[in-house]
Design a protein around this nucleic acid. Structure first.
Length: 422
RNA sequence: GGAAGCGUGGCAGAGCGGCCGAAUGCACUCGCCUUGAAAGCGAGCGUCACGAAAGUGACCGGGGGUUCGAAUCCCCCCGCUUCCGCCA
């Protein structure tokens, strides 16, 4: 959520910035609601101040003057009530409006609205495709770790069952990712709820605009949502708290299931592990000082890249176009892993700088030693998703003999160094 | 699910319907003292909103109500604690 004054400040250039992501900001409406709200606050405060003075006067009043004072005070109450109601009404309008305004894309982002407009940052490893390379579905079934037909029986499309050495590999990946995050990169691990309330979803920006992307439960008159990523509970851990500025940055990680409705992606990635309603992921979240956020994003991206490199996975990093970044983001890098089976780079991780956009919504404040107050900045990145990493391991690790080589770093975790056809 | 009790500032803990944004202690900040530290002494020390500022207003779990006036009285809700039941 934005500070309305900042949006209205011509120096912010909000209208132009938001137009780059296709959002038309109605500054006149914002101005009208904000000034209406502020005027109502003033009227209410002034009437209340007068009413307080009268109340004090009632005490020392003689019996003769008392009724007049009481009556005057009663009359003022109407003014107060009316002003308060107007204040409330405008406040609700203002909040509703602001909650729907996306974050301002950074100027450094390329123009455009699709992944084709992203800017190539760097490439790591060789995008090799052997003759007759197979995709992960074929490979996964061939080496006996994937059973998509039974998953469909259990839950319908966009679910997966892992079997054979698959579950052990999955477990190895999540443990490895967490060990790197906590051991090498200084993240603190949490175990968090995967069912969260509306307020929490609003804090990170999933609500109110993107309810159709979420799985919702309405059991026993509760109103809870399944998290689409651990970003939601991790970032909101400090919602409505004030953090000591000198304690920042905070670096958090968690391995959780993630649930996405994938509304609007009919027909895309319909087979395999690429796009599921339920998958699991290790997520990295950083709460930092706003002035550090851009540098922190590079650091965070580096953490995700380190894991990719240690697995020996060829990938490239792209900076998303202004019209392609998420609602809450200012800058987003995608890490795209090379998939020989598709002959294409596909998104495996996404690292974003949200500036103070989420912190304002969630009320994550900071206080410096000298008493200066402000909002934190938040960032997150996958670190990494289990399913898509498995896809990449299968496709990049496939051997001419039909087996799949497991990266060395994982062997101590899973206990085998290859998958062989059943 | 049943019963009882409790929700006040970072913590602890006072608070006759007006003099309470709120005593006191601890913690914290600055200073004095000290070779240094502790102790001691002095001063300061909540958040938010409106306002250029002076200042004004709001906030004692949340929301309503009574009253000229509510932390204090009434109602509803939420949370927590303890006991019982149930359960992983």
């Amino acid at each position: 959520m934005h500070d309305p004054r900042v949006l209205l400040d011509p120096a912010t250039d909000a209208v132009r910035k938001l137009s780059r992501r296709g959002f038309a900001l109605d500054l006149a409406y914002l101005e009208k609601v904000l000034s209406g709200r502020n005027a109502a606050i003033r009227r209410g405060d002034e009437a209340r101040a007068e009413s307080k003075r009268l109340s004090t006067a009632v005490k020392g009043a003689t019996p003769e003057e008392r009724p007049a004072l009481v009556q005057a005070s009663r009359d003022l109450k109407t003014t107060v009530t009316e002003a308060d109601e107007e204040h409330k009404r405008h406040d609700a309008e203002l909040t509703e409006f602001l909650l729907g305004v996306p974050n301002l894309p950074a100027d450094e982002l390329p123009d455009g609205a699709s992944d084709a407009d992203a800017e190539l940052v760097r490439t790591w490893g060789e995008p090799l495709t052997a003759e007759g390379a197979r995709d992960h579905v074929e490979l996964g079934e061939s080496v006996g770790i994937l059973d998509l037909a039974r998953a469909t029986k259990l839950s319908g499309p966009r679910f997966a069952v892992l079997c054979g050495r698959g579950p052990a590999l999955e477990r190895a990946l999540s443990r490895y990712f967490l060990d790197v995050a906590t051991g090498q990169h200084g993240y603190t691990e949490f175990s968090v709820p995967t069912l969260v309330n509306r307020e929490t979803m609003t804090g990170t920006g999933q609500l109110p605009k993107f309810e159709q992307d979420l799985f919702r439960t309405g059991v026993a008159d509760r109103d809870l949502f399944l998290i689409p990523t651990a970003e939601v509970p991790l970032t909101n851990l400090h919602a409505r708290e004030t953090l000591a500025a000198e304690d920042l940055p905070l670096a958090y990680t968690a391995h959780t299931p993630c649930f996405r409705s994938e509304a609007g992606s009919y027909g895309r990635d319909t087979k395999g592990l690429i796009r599921l309603h339920e998958f699991s992921k290790v997520e990295l979240v950083r709460l930092v000082r706003p002035e550090d956020s851009r540098a922190e994003l590079e650091l965070l991206l580096g953490h995700a890249e380190t894991v990719m490199q240690s697995l020996g996975l060829a990938y490239r990093v792209v900076k998303l176009a202004a019209g392609d970044i998420g609602f809450s983001a200012e800058v987003t890098y995608d890490i795209e892993v090379w998939l020989p089976g598709q002959g294409a780079y596909r998104e495996i991780a996404s690292a974003s700088d949200f500036g103070s956009f989420q912190a304002r919504r969630a009320g994550i404040r900071t206080k410096a030693k000298d008493g200066t107050r402000g909002f934190a900045a938040t960032l997150n990145s996958s670190g990494l998703p289990i399913g898509r990493t498995l896809v990449a391991l299968l496709e990049q690790g496939q051997q001419p003999d039909g087996s799949v080589r497991i990266p060395e770093v994982l062997v101590p975790y899973c206990g085998f160094d290859s998958l062989v056809p059943a």
